[in-house]
Nucleic acid binder design. Structure first.
Length: 993
RNA sequence: GCGUGGGUAGCCAAGCCUGGUCAAAGGCGAGGGACUCAAGAUCCCUUCCCGAAGGGGUUCCCAGGUUCGAAUCCUGGCCCACGCACCA
């Protein structure tokens, strides 16, 4: 039996709820309460309501409360230790029993885990515990993900004493003096996996910890496993090498991931169109745009007269553009030779031939151009680009400027925007319209101009249609025309392409990022239609929760394209055939569920394996264990282990695989969950593809989205500091289902805690003190007049304890043991409905009693009578027999008014009240014609008069007034207002005095 | 825009797939009562509107439709959330 040891954490955290008795406390809190009732509470209340300390001290005599306090935390620690000692959750293959294998994706180890992970984890865990009680041999392992950039990045930031990163750790509750240790990435990997284990154990996780591990080469057998996986992918042609645009730091000469950016998180490379404008001498002015569809609205070009430009030879052409653009083009695989430089002013006033419209437009001076973006030359479409319109207006109004550049004033002033796009909600010239609406003064009004651009672009792009000024593209949707026009111009040599970041990205070294096209990027070929087809096949045979997930996964499968699966930096396995690259973190984590099945042997109980032979694993080992290829004996002798050990691992794998349920938050659907299927179909035979997925929403906390940036996170350890684990588990279970975001509701937690304490108190009390009935079905307690039948209560407690066990394993275990249960409740068989114990007659009687009680209450409520005496009248015998006849007819589907009347009148004593009978028969016929069989059968199984008479005392007690029961056809009944006539079967008449 | 999910009472949240037992579970909040010197504890009742007799009215985003019957099925619309990637 379990060794009872009390966990120090639990003792420290114990919170004795002593009922305060002081008037002081009441006075102090009542205004707050009044206030609360009027205004909704702002922000979450994190902790259970605190009992005022002062009150506690003032009234020591009250401490001796008559009720024994239940300290949930105390026995949580105790039972966690007991399960641990008994290795309850350690799972090994057992061919004699059915298996259940469920997992959640391992969390990334750059911090403590919050309740978002906790929720995904617990949902899978509830299922694991439930399956365990159904008799399955359950495997539920948990690993820890360390691959990738964030840990390195964060460690570096700590080393640099960056305040933001420092603060993140401090907010996690790490002491200032300990923070410098996190300058070493290894420290993160030492601290957070252990911390996560403690957190999950604190929640009562039913995990087989002997199979836990961390990723990356720090853990050699896992590293070998990933290498094996990539060899297979390569052999099967699932990996390919190709060109790839990446966000790139020109100074560091390296790609910049999100975590290495000061600015521009989430920005990605997008392709700009380069438009070529021939000058009279054949040189080409090159302007960059993301809106090639607006070429039909071009009126002029913009050049910054103060900026420097270059003439560069690109292919056979001479391009004029700025110097940074030539560098970007070079990085993007173009050959660019700079020949000379010139000032923008030299170009102003020239004419150049615009593509698509093929006519000369003037080059005008503009000061708004961002020289770091594009080419430093901008084509002007004042109809749709607020910048262009404002710059044009500025120039037209500025005589000095016009004069300075010797421009043809008449010609410049004659330039008018050309309408080109029709979009709902906009006039013909959105660029002009928005500038006027926002009251933009001039080119220096940057903030408003940015907003204007965004607004015009969005509707223009998604809803716009090109108009009659757009030549062959008139009538085409902007979204489509964009690509068409670009293709046409490129094919005619009037356009080219260049990548830029989708928004400004600044590297940690403060250099502005550009886009580089690398030409040797390794990809997983998720874009391959044949591969996609196999994934669809896998999805089709899966069990998905919720079912809506199926459509989403199918969509994601089609939408995915080739995935760059290697990096130059970050922690991870070195690509086995090209040591310049490290395998990226979403790519090393797709089939590791297979690794868990053998991890207990490979890890030797440590997260970083120290097992000597496990440091020597090669592909042949995994080929044998996962595919049964090769000889166990040769393998064993090479590794220096017993043949049996190797064979056992093969058995573990074939026993446990595939995964039955993998649950996660919805953020992973379009990457990890999809990748997992792709890689399984690539590597494993069909019978080892995952069987089930579950997905939940983002956890909201007290109605608000839980997010680090908003300071609304709740770490598991914080939650455990404030609440008992079982309460957290119940609260998570209550939070909501489906793909919607579940809501962690602390008011519920508060109630759940009280109820759970009550339940434990009740269930573990001696029979004689259980009479109060807290925690038990109150209808039954009341019906039994507070003397519930002992065996019934015992059964109730047993069943309830088991049903609750997946959610509140600690409380259930405590009850189980204190009520003499054998073994652990978490391993006991789940209760099953027993058909022999269902008594339809008794249930029908209870339904009648309850509905009668409800009817009486309704009458009392409506009339407002304070009753002195209540009488019930059950239906007269003639109504009973008519009803019975009707039921019989209904059962034969022969119920009609005339048949019923005919049969009724044939009975003795009916004819003399034919009129009444007819009225009632009609009513019964209408009621019963559409009634369900079960409902029909309920009538007749109960002797209403006997039942109500027997329970008159109970009703009296419930209603606190005398209740009498009569037959409606009893001539001696007390019935001052002739209510008895209304009685019908199933509905006794009621009189209230 | 594309994709996915959703809109149920003051709030949270079941029900919808498989139509009827649905004025719609449960929880929170609120009101009343019991117990109490008193309570934030516990228990009971109420909580869409009307009603001095167990009833009636109007509801499940809106508008239509199918059906004897719709929160549930179909069509159209409005609104909200999330994702739209190279990485956890």
């Amino acid at each position: 039996m379990a060794r009872r040891k009390s966990a120090p954490r639990a003792r420290r955290a114990s919170r004795r709820a002593i009922r305060p008795a002081s008037k002081l406390s009441r006075r102090r809190s009542s205004p707050a309460k009044r206030h609360r009732s009027k205004t909704p509470r702002r922000g979450p209340r994190l902790r259970p309501r605190a009992r005022p300390r002062a009150a506690r001290r003032q009234t020591p005599q009250r401490v001796a409360s008559p009720r024994k306090e239940i300290d949930l935390r105390e026995f949580e620690g105790r039972w966690q230790a007991a399960w641990d000692d008994a290795d309850v959750y350690v799972a090994r293959a057992d061919p004699a029993r059915p298996k259940w294998y469920s997992t959640v994706p391992y969390p990334y180890m750059n911090g403590y885990q919050h309740l978002g992970f906790g929720t995904s984890f617990l949902r899978a865990e509830f299922q694991s515990r439930y399956r365990r009680m159904l008799g399955y041999n359950v495997l539920h392992p948990q690993g820890f993900h360390c691959t990738g950039l964030p840990i390195l990045g964060a460690a570096k930031r700590i080393a640099e004493k960056e305040p933001k990163q420092w603060d993140i750790l401090r907010k996690m509750g790490i002491a200032d003096r300990d923070i410098p240790k996190f300058a070493d990435p290894m420290h993160w990997i030492e601290v957070f996996p252990e911390a996560t284990i403690q957190d999950l154990k604190g929640l009562g996780a039913a995990v087989d910890w002997t199979r836990s591990f961390i990723t990356t080469p720090l853990n050699p057998p896992y590293d070998a496993f990933v290498r094996w996986q990539f060899h297979h992918l390569k052999d099967g042609d699932f990996v390919k090498i190709d060109k790839h645009p990446v966000i790139w730091c020109p100074k560091d000469q390296a790609p910049i991931g999100d975590h290495d950016r000061i600015e521009g998180e989430g920005e990605t490379p997008i392709e700009y169109t380069l438009l070529k404008f021939p000058l009279a001498d054949g040189r080409l002015l090159v302007a960059a745009t993301i809106r090639p569809e607006t070429v039909y609205g071009q009126t002029n070009l913009w050049i910054d007269p103060e900026a420097a430009y270059v003439v560069a030879k690109v292919g056979e052409e001479r391009w004029i553009l700025n110097e940074p653009a030539t560098k970007k083009l070079s990085e993007q695989g173009r050959t660019v030779v700079v020949e000379s430089t010139l000032r923008g002013a030299e170009l102003v006033g020239m004419d150049a031939v615009a593509p698509a419209i093929n006519r000369a437009i003037p080059v005008l001076p503009g000061s708004f151009i961002d020289q770091g973006l594009g080419t430093g030359i901008v084509t002007s479409v004042p109809s749709d680009a607020p910048d262009d319109f404002v710059a044009l207006r500025d120039l037209q109004r500025n005589d000095a400027l016009l004069a300075r550049y010797n421009l043809d004033t008449e010609r410049v002033r004659a330039i008018k925007p050309v309408p080109i796009i029709r979009a709902p909600g906009w006039g013909p010239l959105p660029g002009v319209e928005i500038v006027e609406r926002l009251g933009i003064r001039d080119q220096t009004d940057r903030e408003k101009l940015e907003a204007a651009k965004a607004e015009v672009y969005k509707t223009g792009f998604y809803r716009g249609v090109l108009n009659e000024n757009c030549g062959p593209y008139a009538g085409m949707r902007v979204e489509v025309a964009k690509e068409e026009i670009r293709k046409e111009l490129a094919s005619k040599g009037q356009a080219d392409g260049m990548y830029e970041p989708s928004g400004e990205v600044v590297c940690r070294c403060t250099t502005r990022a550009i886009v580089k096209v690398v030409d040797n990027q390794w990809f997983l070929a998720y874009g391959d239609p044949a591969w996609k087809a196999k994934v669809h096949e896998a999805i089709a045979s899966m069990e998905l929760h919720p079912e809506a997930l199926r459509k989403w996964l199918d969509y994601v499968t089609d939408w995915l394209h080739d995935w760059p699966c290697t990096h130059h930096r970050g922690l991870g396995t070195i690509l086995p055939w090209d040591s310049d690259w490290v395998i990226e973190s979403l790519s090393d984590s797709t089939i590791y569920m297979a690794y868990y099945t053998i991890a207990h042997a490979l890890q030797g109980g440590a997260l970083r394996s120290q097992v000597p032979w496990a440091g020597r694993l090669d592909d042949r080992f995994f080929d044998y264990v996962f595919f049964g290829k090769g000889e166990a004996r040769t393998l064993a002798s090479r590794l220096g282990v017993d043949t049996k050990l190797i064979e056992d691992l093969r058995r573990e794998f074939t026993y446990w695989y595939p995964v039955d349920l993998r649950n996660t938050g919805k953020d992973l659907v379009q990457n990890h969950m999809a990748f997992c299927l792709f890689n399984h179909t690539a590597i494993f035979p069909k019978e080892h593809w995952p069987r089930g997925y579950g997905v939940n929403g983002w956890v909201r906390f007290a109605g608000r989205k839980m997010s680090k940036s908003r300071g609304n996170t709740w770490f598991i350890r914080e939650a455990l500091r404030d609440w008992p684990a079982d309460v957290i588990r119940l609260t998570v279970a209550n939070a909501g289902d489906g793909l919607d975001d579940p809501n962690v509701d602390l008011d519920f937690a508060e109630t759940a805690m009280d109820r759970l304490q009550d339940w434990v108190r009740f269930a573990t009390a001696k029979h004689s003190t259980r009479r109060e009935g807290h925690g038990i079905d109150s209808w039954y307690v009341r019906r039994s007049e507070n003397r519930p039948q002992a065996e019934c209560v015992r059964r109730f407690i047993e069943v309830q304890t088991k049903v609750l066990a997946p959610f509140t394993p600690h409380a259930s275990e405590e009850i189980w043991h204190r009520t003499g249960g054998a073994g652990f409740v978490v391993d006991s068989p789940y209760p099953d409905a027993n058909a022999n114990e269902i008594d339809p007659r008794a249930e029908a009687a209870e339904v009648l009693l309850q509905s009668t009680l409800a009817d009486i209450r309704e009458i009392l409520k409506v009339t407002g009578i304070a009753p002195k005496r209540i009488a019930l009248y059950t239906a007269p015998s003639w109504k009973l027999s008519v009803h019975e006849l009707a039921r019989g007819l209904a059962a034969q589907e022969a119920l009609s008014m005339n048949v019923l009347m005919e049969k009724a009148l044939a009975q003795p004593g009916i004819r003399e009240r034919a009129k009444e009978v007819a009225a009632y028969a009609k009513q019964v016929a209408d009621e019963l014609r559409h009634a369900r069989v079960e409902d029909r059968d309920r009538f007749g199984s109960v002797d209403e008069f006997a039942m109500l008479r027997e329970n008159a005392h109970f009703l009296s007690k419930e209603l606190r007034v005398k209740v009498e029961v009569f037959r409606a056809d009893d001539p001696h009944r007390w019935d001052p207002s002739k209510k008895g006539e209304r009685a019908v079967p199933g509905r006794p008449a009621i009189y209230v005095e």
